[in-house]
Write a protein that binds this DNA or RNA. Structure first.
Length: 563
RNA sequence: CGGGGUGUGGCCUAGCGGCUUAAGGCGCCUGCUUUGGGAGCAGGAGAUCGUGAGUUCGAGUCUCACCACCCCGACCA
């Protein structure tokens, strides 16, 4: 590829105000260009990288016995209605209509399509297990696109769906786990594998493959000894006993002219934060009821955990009006003691969910459902009885657990019978001739996000440093004054040998060409100058460590072919 | 969806009611010159100032609405 002819050349003054390195570097170097928020053009240099990522994934998927196919991008809306996902998806489903008025969802993930395809065939136990996958554009009407390729509204995903018996499933899950480890290793990405929450996808367990990065959106905890990791939404922790040896004292209401925060409460009573009860009030739009979450004052509520424990779907914070008018309470002074069972105006149900940490304290204090009134010596069971008790606490780092942030580049889900239960005829014929539901899993990798994660972890102040396996080229040739003929010859011979080469044949200053080479980030750079031309050698420099050696043309070819 | 911010040639910025022809830098084009870290000189093309209303004798500049984008929160590959 001659840079003089390349469409979408590097330009250092594009994207200067982008906050995320990968967003800025990929834009400056001419790999991507934004269309509108969250939608990107993948430019000629970018698509090379994208294709290399795709190839690595495909190789490992095929090696693991998965079979590639491609599904329609428009999904008949009835399929999504069959599984109730028109309303419960975490991402906003995008819909389109054809001229006959038939409704389609723009595919954001394809579990229903995979099941619908499989049930069109007459499957028996002899066909199981199998795993089908595709690379295709996914559409998600994200509330907020962010950070270049990190969070977009359209992206290519490798999505795989496995069909098996329950007994066969564990092997497939492990096989995909291993394949993912190899895929990311081939891209020189270090990943943590964290147990995570299945969310709207369904099923009972899943694992996220996360590249540690400050700009990532996943918060997770890693056991420093075993390396085992948990996404914050599923991390379970013991929060220790505080004062359960104390005797239960008499419940007492006191005047408490204070602010509305937890800090105000602790300061006013001069008592430790952990002895306070934290009350967070939600409303679940899906089940149309209030959910009062209560927890020990030094801990925070994790909404994903609360969603599970309360069997809710769509939690939002309750408004001050709802707290005052419907629940007879006061913002900042909500209390489980005497908390209403239903809204006094709306009649809507109100459930109380208590974190297990409340069992670790005695004689707690907190609001009294009245402005500027607090209760002292609140005790669970005696003074309030939660409807549900469980783990709804946000995990915190401690001696054993390190907190990390990262970019979720892939995940593997156990789906179990979730879809085969919801969808008709999601069955195979067993050895005994009976119709049985199949057991499923699904496995996704976002290619653009992976590309961004690589740039986040492979760069310096001058630009990108691509791992050789996914670099847009093996070599970047820079022709200096007096080296043009040598560069031409080298370029032609490498191209005819099938080597991917970027050749900077532009009429620019040496500095400009070198700076662009650093920005683009090809792992090896060759310089042809008057000096090298005379000696009939080529100056080859490593982008990562700057090591330089003088090589004959055929030595260089060998180096490239062996790398 | 809530909060904050920004919209002026491809990019960055100036202009903030009347200096009239919207200015400058980067980039782009032409010519000369130059080639080991983003060169120089000369010339040139390119904007009805996000959109639409309104105020005014007069709007890039003031008001309102809308739109787009960026940043912060709740979701995910």
């Amino acid at each position: 590829m001659r840079l003089s002819q390349l469409f979408a050349k590097p330009s250092k003054n594009e994207g200067l105000d982008y906050k995320i390195d990968s967003h800025r570097l990929l834009t400056q170097a001419g790999f991507i260009r934004e269309s509108t928020a969250g939608r990107y053009y993948m430019l000629p240099l970018g698509i090379k990288v994208h294709q290399n990522i795709e190839k690595i994934i495909r190789d490992h998927m095929n090696k693991a016995g998965a079979q590639e196919l491609i599904m329609p991008v428009l999904h008949p809306i009835d399929l999504w209605e069959e599984t109730n996902r028109t309303t419960t998806t975490g991402f906003e489903l995008m819909k389109v209509e054809d001229r006959r008025g038939a409704e389609f969802a723009l595919g954001g993930t394809a579990e229903e399509m995979a099941v619908d395809l499989v049930r069109k065939f007459n499957i028996s136990y002899r066909d199981l297990p199998f795993n089908i996958y595709q690379f295709s554009m996914k559409f998600r009407d994200e509330l907020r696109a962010r950070g270049g390729l990190l969070r977009v509204r359209e992206f290519v995903m490798k999505d795989a769906y496995s069909f098996s018996t329950e007994e066969q499933f564990q092997d497939i899950y492990e096989q995909m786990w291993d394949a993912y480890i190899n895929i990311f290793a081939d891209m020189d990405l270090k990943v943590d594998v964290a147990a995570a929450d299945n969310g709207y996808i369904g099923g009972e367990y899943c694992h996220e493959f996360i590249v540690e990065s400050e700009v990532g959106e996943s918060r997770y905890l890693v056991n420093s000894k075993t390396g085992e990791a948990w996404h914050e939404d599923v991390a379970v922790q013991e929060h220790g006993d505080k004062n359960t040896n104390e005797k239960e004292a008499k419940l007492e209401e006191v005047d408490a002219p204070r602010g509305k925060t937890m800090e105000d409460g602790a300061k006013h009573h001069n008592l430790p934060m952990w002895q306070q009860i934290k009350d967070v009030l939600y409303f679940d739009e899906a089940t149309d009821r209030y959910v009062l979450a209560i927890i020990r004052g030094d801990l925070d509520v994790n909404e994903a955990k609360l969603t599970h424990v309360a069997k809710a779907w769509d939690l939002r914070a309750a408004s001050d009006e709802e707290i005052i008018d419907d629940l007879n309470s006061a913002p900042g002074f909500i209390s489980p003691v005497g908390f209403v069972k239903k809204g006094v105006k709306s009649g809507k149900e109100a459930v109380m969910v208590a974190d297990k940490s409340l069992r670790s304290i005695r004689n707690a204090y907190g609001g009294a459902n009245k402005k500027d009134k607090d209760l002292l010596n609140i005790n669970i069971d005696r003074d309030y009885q939660p409807d549900i008790e469980g783990d709804i606490a946000m995990a915190e780092p401690n001696e054993a657990m390190i907190e990390k942030r990262g970019i979720e580049v892939g995940n593997i889900f156990q789906l179990g019978y979730h879809y085969s239960n919801l969808m008709d005829s999601a069955e195979y014929t067993s050895k005994e001739g009976k119709r049985e539901k199949y057991y499923m899993g699904c496995y996704g990798i976002g290619l653009g996000r992976t590309m961004a994660a690589i740039v986040e972890t492979h760069q310096d102040e001058k630009g990108i440093i691509w791992p050789a396996s996914i670099s847009p080229a093996s070599l970047h040739i820079v022709a200096m004054r007096g080296g043009e003929d040598q560069a031409e010859k080298l370029y032609e011979s490498l191209v005819s040998s099938g080597v991917e080469v970027i050749y900077d044949d532009r009429d620019l200053s040496a500095g400009a060409k070198l700076a662009d080479a650093d920005l683009i980030g090809v792992p090896l750079r060759a310089i042809c100058s008057e000096k090298t031309s005379k000696k009939d050698v080529i100056e080859v420099t490593s982008r990562s460590d700057g090591d330089t050696q003088m090589l004959k043309a055929d030595e260089l070819l060998n180096t490239l072919k062996n790398s």
